[in-house]
Design a protein around this nucleic acid. Structure first.
Length: 814
RNA sequence: GCCGGGGUGGCGGAACUGGUCAGACGCGCCCGACUUAAAAUCGGGUGGCCUCCGGGCCGUGCGGGUUCGAGCCCCGCCCCCGGCACCA
């Protein structure tokens, strides 16, 4: 190799081999987890092997790599594993597209991704590699499922569920975006099916409250999860239908407006609708309306400009005043939320008001602004602060919050209501009618019902089938030999469950498996998970703000309840990187705007690509890909190379303090360290090192040039580890990856002199170089002595003088 | 409608606790050096307007305010991105 030319290919291959041979990034588990060590767990979301890596992955894993390198060089044992989220729709659909078997295409993709990862030079502990589709892994996914089943947290239930007609499977609510399948974009349908669910709703409150245990999560993610859980406090109030002698509960957040309920509405899907229709003279009309409404999609119903509905001819009794109010059926009431029935208070609810207007129903005001006066001819009154109850018998005059409590209390005493909390969150539907997933380890026995597969029979292997195309029933059903088994309980003929698990089940515990990936007796060792977890820094895309991140939190809490782990939140700190756009759109194959990391690495080397992806801008913001951007960081590497080689021509002086270049180097150490560790920003450190290198090339005769060059090489190592290691070696050192992170000399951050800014009325009029530490009056005297300042003071009276030590003097004149 | 994030040169962005004429660093562009030439590389310039070349005025989405001083704080708007939404 020509020593004077930078060649990324040779250098990167060389150092990747060195690291591998040295086991540089392998971190063994401690023999005694109780012994205090400096350790940290840095984790990035694992990739789906449905294709190759894209620039989003490059950003994700380079971010994690910088954090890992810096922490390692601070003396931490860094757990930094990698794995593959191999099961699931994306991988299976990719296999179908290319007419290949999912296992074969997934494993081929894994190999390609592994090769890409190694080419990028990310510092990973390969001894901990896992893939969710391997029996050694999914055996424990099944084991955990059975633990949740035993605890009553996994159950089977028939319910209206979301069905994707294209992917031929049910979906979790979280996988439906604007009424469409998150994966393929097809419009989802509603079906009544018996499916496997996880009781995540039991954890709704803890998913909210235990956000307090998190060290640092982006506000937007917490907000999204709060919105998704959708907790609202109110009351359940029981209304009575005399004719049927049935009680109908409703949920309301406004029990204070109960006296204003002038009608009552059932969702078209409500079971009482048919019961009422049977006895009603308008039976046909009611049934026709219910059928019409059911046929409309939720979005259509929501978008309707005019409210629709039909009167049933029956009445219900308002429990607070025994008023008989008419029962209507209307599709603005949703069966999925609350109880599917509402009390309508048109004076204080916009939707009820619109309905009342449309059908000429009475409007009664029962809350008013604090003076208690209801405006003449008032219609709908928006909720406001300091309302008081009116027209509410003994409750009139109470401030609304008191009224709420009093009315709910009054109802409670009479058995007609109670405080209640309602959630938007639904249980997690986990079964899928697809081939490429973890088999659900239960057997259906005609005599015993659902029987869990005994632990010792795990894993239930995913059978080989000839045709794995989705057909609405799981392809596993065609594996007849696999399907028919004796019941583990009674020994009679039985059938295996043929649905597979949602891929999000696999990824809800993978971060635990990394701590003990080869364990064949249990999913993980309790001592090791408790030692490494919670993850100190988790990094991944915002697209998982709800899905994966909420499921993983749920799993962690459930496993904690089962006393399998000793912590309640999986990820202490979370960082979401922004999306990378090109030509104004998110990079995607279908839009044809992807930039291939491989091609960029071929052309510029992994170091230049790593530098650019972080230098582009704040890592958490979305940003536009710049075609010529990598050239800039590539040039920087060449410049660093040249500056280092120029330096090698000079005799080292040993000077590390006192010169302008020495001070710049110390300031750069301080800036880079603070940015990465405290501020968690990754673009400005690159700028700072560029400045340092620019300074070296401008002032090569500064005695501290060797120190400045070594500092630049050392600081850039987390970003560009290959070239840094090579230059470090040429500078006569070794193993930069385990060399202590540099520490700035505080005394070098202060200057003997500084530039004093002199302002007149807030405008800068002069800048003077003055000694550090002069008393204020001397600074003022020096400032007054400036002819430029005098020119602006001339003829005016100085009314006030502001002195900011180390910074400026401002004269206020007038 | 509710909640969260954001608006700075031709572009990506910087300014970290209100304090050095806002614009670091990089991209692009312009000029120069090297070259027969080009590329690469190196050096210089690059917010706008005016200029007697000293400098002056304007400028961080819009309008106000607080302050000696505001990109940063407060009030009222506009626009963009994301989440939730006939959720009772």
């Amino acid at each position: 190799m020509d020593d004077d030319r930078y060649d990324s290919k040779t250098i990167e291959a060389k150092w990747q081999r060195v690291w591998e041979d040295a086991g540089a990034f392998h971190v063994p588990n401690p023999a005694d987890p109780a012994a205090a060590t400096r350790k940290t767990y840095v984790l990035e979301m694992l990739p789906y092997p449905s294709g190759e890596l894209h620039m989003g992955h490059v950003l994700n894993y380079t971010l994690g790599d910088v954090v890992s390198h810096v922490r390692r060089r601070h003396g931490y044992a860094v757990l930094r594993p990698m794995g593959y989220d191999a099961f699931g729709l994306p991988a299976e659909n990719a296999a179908i597209r290319e007419g290949s078997n999912p296992r074969i295409s997934t494993e081929r993709n894994i190999e390609a991704i592994r090769r890409q990862i190694k080419r990028m030079g990310w510092s990973i502990d390969w001894a901990r590699e896992v893939s969710t589709h391997e029996p050694e892994y999914y055996r424990w996914t099944q084991w955990l499922f059975l633990k949740l089943y035993d605890a009553g947290l996994a159950y089977r239930k028939e319910a209206p569920v979301k069905w994707c007609p294209n992917d031929q499977t049910v979906l979790a609510n979280e996988q439906v975006i604007d009424g469409r399948c998150e994966r393929c974009g097809a419009e989802v349908e509603s079906r009544n099916l018996e499916q496997w669910m996880f009781r995540i709703t039991d954890y709704a409150d803890r998913l909210l409250d235990e956000m307090a245990l998190l060290e640092s999560w982006p506000e937007r993610v917490l907000t999204m999860q709060r919105n998704w859980i959708g907790r609202s406090e109110g009351a359940e109030v029981t209304f009575h239908i005399g004719e049927l002698d049935v009680d109908v509960p409703v949920f309301t957040t406004r029990p204070d407006t109960l006296f204003g309920a002038t009608f009552f509405v059932l969702a078209p899907e409500h079971s009482l609708v048919e019961q009422l229709a049977e006895r009603s003279p308008h039976a046909d009309e009611i049934r026709a309306y219910a059928r019409r409404a059911a046929a409309r999609k939720g979005e259509e119903r929501a978008a309707a400009v005019e409210k629709t509905g039909v009167f049933t001819g029956f009445y219900v009794t308002n429990p607070v005043n025994d008023a008989e109010i008419p029962i209507w059926v209307a599709d603005y009431v949703l069966m999925e939320y609350g109880t599917g029935a509402i009390m309508a208070v048109p004076a204080h609810d916009e939707r009820d008001f619109a309905f009342a207007e449309q059908f000429g129903l009475p409007i009664v005001h029962v809350v008013a602004p604090e003076d208690g006066e209801v405006e003449e001819g008032a219609a709908y009154v928006a909720h406001s602060e300091n309302e008081v109850l009116v027209n509410s018998e003994q409750f009139s005059g109470m401030p609304a919050p008191d009224g709420k409590r009093a009315i709910v209390g009054w109802l409670g005493e009479r058995g007609r209501g109670r405080p209640a909390v309602n959630y938007r969150l639904r249980d997690w539907l986990l079964s899928r009618q697809r081939y490429w997933g973890c088999p659900i380890p239960v057997v259906h026995c005609p005599a015993c019902g659902i029987v869990p597969v005994p632990e010792e029979d795990l894993p239930v292997l995913l059978p080989e089938v000839e045709d794995y195309m989705p057909k609405g029933r799981s392809p596993l059903a065609t594996a007849t030999e696999w399907l028919h088994v004796p019941c583990p309980s009674c020994g009679g003929a039985a059938e295996r469950e043929t649905d597979t698990m949602d891929t999000f089940v696999d990824s809800s515990w993978y971060f635990l498996r990394y701590t003990d990936p080869l364990n064949d007796r249990e999913p993980f060792d309790r001592g090791m998970v408790d030692y490494w977890l919670p993850v100190n820094q988790y990094i991944g895309g915002i697209e998982h703000a709800i899905l994966h991140l909420m499921y993983a939190r749920f799993f962690t809490k459930a496993l904690n309840d089962l006393d399998l782990i000793g912590f309640r939140e999986p990820f202490a700190r979370l960082f979401n990187q922004g999306m990378i756009y090109r030509f104004g759109a998110k990079m995607s194959k279908s839009k044809g705007n992807v930039v291939s990391p491989d091609e960029l690495v071929d052309e510029h080397g992994a170091d230049a690509v790593r530098l650019y992806i972080l230098f582009m801008g704040p890592a958490d913001q979305d940003k536009e890909w710049q075609e010529t951007g990598v050239e800039g960081t590539s040039r920087f590497i060449h410049r660093l190379w040249r500056v280092t080689h120029d330096e090698l021509e000079r005799e080292p002086t040993g000077v590390t303090t006192g010169t302008p270049l020495a001070r710049k180097a110390h300031a750069t150490i301080a800036k880079v360290t603070d940015d990465i560790e405290r501020r968690f920003v990754f673009n400005t450190p690159v700028s700072a090192v560029m400045e340092l290198v620019n300074d070296v090339s401008r002032t090569p005769d500064d005695p501290a040039s060797r120190f400045a060059v070594e500092t630049a090489v050392s600081l850039i190592q987390p970003y560009a580890p290959h070239v840094a290691e090579e230059l470090w070696q040429r500078l006569g050192h070794e193993r930069l990856w385990e060399t202590a992170w540099p520490v700035a000399d505080e005394s070098q951050l202060e200057r003997d002199t500084f530039e004093l800014v002199v302002q007149v009325n807030g405008k800068v009029r002069d800048r003077l170089v003055v000694e550090t530490g002069l008393p204020e009056d001397e600074l003022v005297a020096l400032a007054l002595a400036s002819p430029r300042v005098q020119a602006h003071l001339d003829g005016f009276e100085v009314r006030k003088t502001i002195v900011v030590p180390q910074k400026l003097v401002n004269f206020v004149v007038g």
